[in-house]
């Protein structure tokens, strides 16, 4: 089966007052209908990777190299109308803050029907009916009334649902989720996670789910990729990764998530802080914080070792 998303050796560098090497050689693929979680801390490059897939980064100060294809299309080559059709039609995105997706001066119905017409064509009346259906699909109660509501009139969880409906208006094959539940309360977060899981199956979409929260990733993902300093350091199925983390950073993250922590006992915390990424890493970027680092770790960049079963680890110790 051809993958829905294929990322080959992606590098993203921001130029400006200071240079930031945000993504440093990411290769990953996503099968149709699969959910891949991209897990990392702030500055790990997870959001940048996602935004690159929709070409949302400021073009003038971003240097992108590598190959990116979504549904067989070369994303980096898209221009003008093609790019506009791609965004929302093939791949669409949901954000942490629905304010980014909605214009405050138009009603929810206007904005969703507009997106429907944009990608599906048809009349305004037909698009409005479709918009209402979409609101039902995301389980918004009394959708008729919400169509006429403005974004600020909805509660946080409702706004998040409406944003998902907007993202689904063009029947995308790929849904990019950038921390969509981070700002929500726990009882609302789980509702949105379950909704996304369900919609992903119903619409048979592939989904890239960026989050900093392992628990959230476990709830929605089939596979997880752990990012650190602009690289994917470990990939595997959720089960493998949670039960048998191989990369020392993954182990540290699990410990920090209080996975199996004993109350009041000091945590096995990763010391230090992530590197600044003013320069692209030439050795293992995690080595300075790694308890099991050996000499080679601070000398050369580890290869992506394939351990079989879809398991890949970027660590000198794992590749033997």
């Amino acid at each position: 089966m051809t993958p829905l998303v294929e990322i080959e050796n992606l590098h993203v560098t921001f130029r400006g007052e200071r240079t930031v090497h945000a993504v440093n050689g990411v290769s990953v693929s996503l099968a149709p209908g699969e959910v891949l979680g991209i897990l990392g801390e702030s500055g790990s490059g997870k959001s940048v990777t996602l935004k690159t897939l929709l070409r949302l980064l400021p073009e003038r100060r971003t240097v992108i190299t590598g190959a990116l294809s979504v549904d067989g299309q070369d994303v980096l080559a898209l221009e003008g109308l093609e790019l506009a059709n791609f965004r929302g039609g093939i791949a669409s995105m949901i954000f942490q803050d629905p304010g980014l997706a909605f214009d405050p001066v138009y009603t929810i119905g206007d904005q969703i029907s507009e997106a429907v017409m944009r990608h599906m064509g048809g009349t305004k009346a037909g698009a409005m009916i479709r918009a209402r259906e979409l609101l039902e699909r995301v389980r918004i109660p009394s959708p008729e009334r919400r169509l006429k509501a403005y974004p600020h009139e909805l509660s946080g969880g409702m706004r998040q649902r409406a944003m998902i409906a907007l993202a689904l208006a063009g029947k995308p094959k790929l849904l990019l989720a950038d921390e969509p539940t981070t700002a929500l309360d726990a009882t609302v977060q789980i509702q949105i996670l379950l909704l996304l899981r369900q919609l992903q199956r119903e619409f048979d979409m592939g989904m890239l789910f960026v989050t900093h929260d392992i628990g959230v990733a476990v709830e929605v993902c089939d596979r997880i990729a752990i990012m650190y300093a602009g690289q994917i350091v470990e990939t595997g199925t959720v089960r493998d990764l949670i039960r048998d983390p191989r990369h020392p950073y993954t182990r540290g993250l699990l410990a920090a998530n209080l996975h199996g922590a004993v109350k009041g006992m000091r945590l096995d915390a990763i010391p230090g802080a992530p590197p600044a990424l003013n320069e692209a890493p030439t050795a293992c970027p995690f080595a300075p914080r790694c308890a099991s680092a050996i000499e080679v770790c601070s000398k050369t960049l580890p290869e992506n070792a394939d351990l079989g079963g879809g398991r890949r680890v970027r660590c000198h110790l794992a590749s033997g």
Partner: peptide, 11 residues
């Protein structure tokens, strides 16, 4: 509502 942390016993 807490995420389960167990892929076999998802919420």
């Amino acid at each position: 509502a807490m995420p389960s942390m167990d892929p076999d016993r998802r919420t």
